[in-house]
């Protein structure tokens, strides 16, 4: 039996952006299950992500948050269930189709995942050349410059990743994600390992990007400040399912014992 707790609509502060009410979800997840050996991580997870919204998924360490977003770009294969991204059923795509979809889905990795052996310019060139092979050098330079300006690091173009601070790496990784102008961005712990000031800068940057580029975002985090500021809607991933869903205010005021316990644990950290 499902234990999903949905916060009543009458108490909901969250409203989908008007244009999304009639729109199809960009991401639709139904009954996703994933196990690693005997460890059942996801036990039938459901979620929809609509255009222009920021959905934050929170949960304890090891609850399967990162596994879930990796399933969306097939870095991890689901055992069971339905994963649709931009209308395509991800598990059944061939490699060429999957690569095309991946161009429309940006992914910001937890540790930035910049290529160590390449300069910042080459890091940004890499996805660009894979997806737009016939682009002229001038156009390429223009796009790289623009992406770096968007994250405020145009001057770092010729630096190596080892010469960048943690916050700068995160910004460059975001620029690399943005350069293909994705429709959806998946963030895996965007503020982890950063000091509070830099974390706040990254949060503001994510909000600016969403405003300027009209992208939808699915954000995995255990940073509740980040979740509070950034989310239109929050989901608590517990026991492998979408246990509770609502705005930050709604969830933090929930009477559900597990939700209350989760918030208490987070506050005590």
């Amino acid at each position: 039996m499902s234990t999903k707790t949905v916060i009543p609509d009458s108490h909901s502060l969250f409203q989908h952006p008007e244009q999304t009410l009639a729109a199809d979800p960009l991401i639709r997840i139904r009954g996703v299950k994933k196990a690693f050996g005997s460890n059942q991580v996801l036990r039938g997870f459901d979620l929809d992500l609509y255009p222009n919204e920021n959905v934050v998924i929170v949960g304890k360490s090891g609850s399967g948050k990162s596994v879930l977003i990796k399933c969306l770009v097939r870095l991890v294969e689901v055992d069971e269930g339905q994963v649709e991204v931009l209308g395509y059923t991800i598990p059944s795509l061939d490699q060429e189709e999957l690569d095309q979809i991946r161009a429309d889905v940006g992914f910001l990795f937890q540790g930035s995942a910049l290529y160590d052996s390449m300069t910042v310019r080459e890091n940004l060139q890499f996805p660009l050349r894979r997806h737009s092979q016939r682009m002229r050098g001038q156009d390429e330079d223009h796009l790289i410059q623009e992406a770096l300006e968007n994250v405020g690091l145009a001057h770092a173009i010729d630096l190596m990743p080892a010469e960048l601070s943690g916050g700068m790496k995160r910004r460059i990784a975001l620029a690399r994600t943005l350069i293909l102008q994705p429709k959806v961005i998946l963030y895996d712990e965007p503020t982890s390992g950063l000091d509070p000031i830099t974390a706040n800068e990254i949060i503001q940057l994510i909000l600016t990007i969403q405003r300027n580029f009209q992208t939808a975002a699915l954000i995995i985090t255990h940073d509740m400040d980040c979740a509070r500021v950034i989310s239109n809607r929050m989901v608590i991933l517990q026991d492998g399912i979408n246990y509770a869903e609502g705005t930050y205010t709604e969830l933090s005021a929930s009477k559900d014992p597990k939700v209350k316990a989760f918030f208490k644990e987070v506050q005590n950290r």
């Binding site: 990796k70 770009v73 870095l75 490699q95 690569d99 095309q100 991946r102 161009a103 889905v105 992914f107 990795f109 937890q110 540790g111 995942a113 910049l114 290529y115 160590d116 052996s117 890499f126 996805p127 894979r130 997806h131």
Partner: peptide, 21 residues
């Protein structure tokens, strides 16, 4: 060491989502 480091820092995954094998 190089590929191992790329693996644990998710650079290989980043390459894959960039449409590269």
């Amino acid at each position: 060491a190089e590929l191992g480091s790329m693996k644990v820092t998710e650079q290989i995954d980043a390459m894959e989502v960039s449409g590269t094998n």
